[in-house]
Design a protein around this nucleic acid. Structure first.
Length: 292
DNA sequence: AATAGTATCAACCGCCGAATT
DNA sequence: AAATTCGGCGGTTGATACTAT
């Protein structure tokens, strides 16, 4: 037979998370680190699927998340990476510390896509729109020629998209998936130039750039050592295998109460403050919107 | 002020490869 | 080897906020 089911589908709650649920999840992760999502709902006392907990944590509650709109540099980087990687949002997100794949995906769909279209650039192929139709109308051979040219939005300042990129395909590039090695090299050169100019992008584009450990690494936040003023710097704990051995246990078996409400509410405040920086002036918690 | 249309984004859904039994 | 779940991913949806009329 296979593994144990992650959760019984019956009685699993869906929809927006409440402040209470967030609090439970945060306190559990801060206490025990993140691993074995299957066990999290049970241990944290949540009526949620483990998958839902993981999503909530990685996309919203993680203390290392940046909040607010993407900066110009980040946006440019997303465009560059999208030209290279296509819709591999997780790969793109891995290059932008503090940003999630969901966030980038949303930003792409709501902002960047429109921006590119406005500039006459196809957000899928990164080709100028007009040129693409012409190519399609001509011979099939033109297709290969098309791929000879790189078509990134022009990067001349390392931070902004030049409108000229849409008019002429001077630095045009091919779409991601079918890129030849030549194209790859050319794109690499471009990105290299950008990297030379902008240290941030340089750091982010390094092929072996260290991925911030917070993304996948299990955490440990000993109460005494925890610095809630700097939530982006979690302490690592590479030993959470104990959790894997546990199947049927209660929350309190693990000293779940070692975090005070004060400490947890500090984290919640941090998240809430981040929310207030967002352009949209939403209440921090779903429940508050309806006065729950 | 009321309504309709649009924009935003958190959360869900379904798929896939890896892992496990 | 087969059956099954897990964890992760990308696409999509739905609720809410915002803007225009």
């Amino acid at each position: 037979m296979g593994r144990q089911p992650c959760c019984d589908k019956l009685g699993v709650k869906k929809g927006p998370w409440t402040a209470e649920e967030d609090k439970k999840l945060i306190s559990f992760i801060l206490t025990n680190g993140q691993c074995c999502w299957r066990a999290v709902p049970k241990l944290a006392g949540l009526r949620r699927c483990g998958k839902s907990c993981r999503l909530r944590w990685t996309n919203y509650l993680r203390p290392d998340l940046k909040r607010g709109l993407l900066t110009e540099a980040e946006e440019q980087l997303v465009i560059d990476l999208h030209a290279r990687l296509g819709n591999r949002w997780s790969k793109i997100a891995a290059r932008l510390p503090g940003r999630t794949d969901n966030e980038i995906k949303n930003h792409w769909n709501t902002h960047i896509k429109k921006k590119l279209l406005k500039m006459g650039i196809d957000p899928v192929t990164h080709e100028p729109l007009q040129k693409e139709t012409k190519v399609a109308e001509t011979s099939p051979d033109a297709e290969s020629e098309k791929h000879q040219k790189l078509e990134l939005p022009e990067i001349n300042s390392g931070s902004t998209i030049s409108a000229s990129a849409s008019s002429e395909d001077q630095n045009s590039c091919s779409p991601t998936e079918n890129s030849s090695s030549d194209e790859s090299r050319l794109l690499d050169n471009i990105l290299e130039n950008v990297s030379d100019y902008d240290p941030l992008i340089s750091y982010l584009l390094e092929e072996e750039a260290p991925v911030p450990p917070v993304v996948d690494a299990p955490w440990e936040f000993p109460a005494a050592a925890q610095n809630f003023d700097n939530p982006g710097m979690p302490l690592l704990d590479d030993n959470c295998s104990w959790l894997l051995d546990c199947q049927d246990f209660g929350v309190h078996d693990f000293g779940f109460d070692c975090f005070s409400d004060m400490e947890i509410s500090n984290v919640l405040d941090t998240i809430e403050m981040g929310n207030k920086e967002r352009a949209v002036n939403l209440p921090s918690w779903p429940g508050e919107r309806e006065g729950e």
